[in-house]
Design a binder for these strands. Structure first.
Length: 420
DNA sequence: TCTGGGGTCCTAGGACCC
DNA sequence: TCTGGGGTCCTAGGACCC
């Protein structure tokens, strides 16, 4: 049997951990740039605040109901996530960290699953202070569904074990197709139109229908609904195949120099991520785009792929090639909203094909980056040392007007138990 | 004024090879 | 009169996830 453990309203719960004053009050966390709602407390859901709702549409509602609003603080959430995963790993040696707030646990061999599920819940609550829900079932897809049923029905015990055909059948029948893991809006519309409305309906479709209409991914999904495991637990996180850094600007930009500065910074982050997983990029893709919500503006979006002479993960080289790529696609006269870089066709650091005509001294580059990473680590990840093209006015930086401190990762921001 | 960011996988179709 | 077949690789686009 497989368990899916998922933190309840994760980002909101993280903020609440350090702001006990907002317990009982509606709380939301906003996306980058304070754009949309990406996490809501139960009270906020009751107010009808939707996932993904733009914050500026709701100023009045947020005020009226005294909603506590936070900018997202991924440093804090990442740190708490690690603590949750550490607790979970003590319950099952085989575990897959599926996302920042979810993990699949292999519970095979255990006899009393309800007892174990309750212990997992209590353990995370006690050791980290975050509430979780636990769904247990024979397959990952059914475990997901059980987990969802816990939350939807607000089961007081906080877990659900699908250990009999009757229980499974009931949850299948109560789950609409759009709420199945792996069925998005497009497939859901198609399935409804063909008369398949809930997960039970979908579990009974013929294999060839699933294969034809939903690809092999859908066929696996249908079998998982029938209790046949088709999606394996992936314990080791495979290295990423692409690394993307893209952000909207805090304000619209027209000057190329401002966009160059932003892009240089994103390229620097991408390079750092590559080094962290010992990869190099063979190709980079750079894009710029205007804000397509502004009907009054002329729209432009374009991207370009550039093959690097030699696979690279040095900040200097990535910035250089990113800016060259930008020269190809930047056109003056537009209000730009966003730029970004994707490092693609990643290869392991150790398997680099040198280029006969390349003049970069890679050994020197590698040592320079080691020094840079060492200094950055020393300052707890703060980019104290930068390239000149990254510096300047920072017209493009994110809006984060309600950012909470990094309580667990920066010593000077640690919470004080007593006023000084 | 203000609408996120970062990923994966699959398929179809074209180019090219022998 | 007759105009193959099988394979690989690449890309773009579409679907999904949190």
């Amino acid at each position: 049997m497989i368990a899916l453990v998922d933190c309840n309203n994760f980002y909101v719960s993280c903020e609440r951990l350090f702001h006990p004053g907002v317990l009982g009050r509606p709380v939301v966390v906003l996306s980058n740039n304070d754009g949309c709602v990406i996490s809501r407390s139960e009270e906020a859901k009751t107010l009808g605040i939707r996932m993904g709702a733009p914050a500026f549409f709701m100023e009045e509602l947020l005020q009226r109901h005294q909603v506590a609003v936070f900018s997202s603080n991924y440093t804090l959430y990442g740190s708490l996530s690690q603590r949750v995963m550490q607790v979970l790993s003590s319950f099952a040696p085989e575990m897959e960290v599926y996302s920042i707030d979810e993990a699949f646990l292999d519970l095979s061999g255990h006899t009393s699953l309800p007892t174990l599920a309750a212990a997992i819940r209590a353990g995370v609550l006690h050791d980290v202070g975050l509430p979780v829900s636990v769904g247990v079932a024979p397959t990952k897809t059914l475990a997901k569904m059980a987990n969802r049923a816990v939350k939807k029905n607000k089961l007081p015990e906080g877990f659900l074990v699908l250990d009999s055909p009757e229980k499974t059948e009931a949850v299948l029948a109560a789950t609409q197709v759009e709420d199945i893991w792996g069925i998005g809006p497009q497939y859901a519309a198609m399935l409804h139109q063909k008369g398949f409305h809930n997960a039970r309906d979908l579990s009974l479709v013929p294999d060839d229908f699933a294969r034809r209409e939903l690809t092999v991914v859908g066929l696996r999904l249908v079998r998982e609904l029938r209790g046949i495991p088709c999606i394996a637990l992936e314990e080791a996180t495979p290295p990423k195949k692409a690394v993307c850094v893209a952000r909207s600007f805090g304000q619209l930009l027209t000057q190329k120099t401002d966009i160059q500065e932003a892009l240089a910074n994103y390229a620097a982050v991408a390079a750092q991520k590559l080094r962290a997983q010992n990869s190099r990029a063979t190709v980079i893709q750079v894009f710029v785009q205007t804000n397509n919500f502004r009907g009054q503006d002329a729209q432009y979006h374009r991207s370009v792929n550039v093959r690097l002479p030699v696979p690279a993960n040095s900040t200097r080289e990535l910035i250089r090639h990113a800016l060259l790529a930008l020269d190809h696609i930047f056109k003056p006269g537009y209000n730009y909203k966003k730029t970004g870089i994707t490092a693609m066709d990643l290869v392991p650091d150790t398997e680099v094909q040198e280029n006969l005509f390349e003049t970069t001294n890679h050994d020197r580059e590698r040592k320079l980056m080691q020094a840079l990473d060492g200094i950055t680590r020393h300052f707890a990840g703060k980019p104290v040392l930068r390239f000149a093209v990254q510096g300047g006015d920072k017209k493009w930086t994110l809006r984060q007007e309600r950012l909470s401190p990094c309580y667990t990762t920066r010593l000077h921001e640690i919470i004080k138990a007593k006023p000084e």
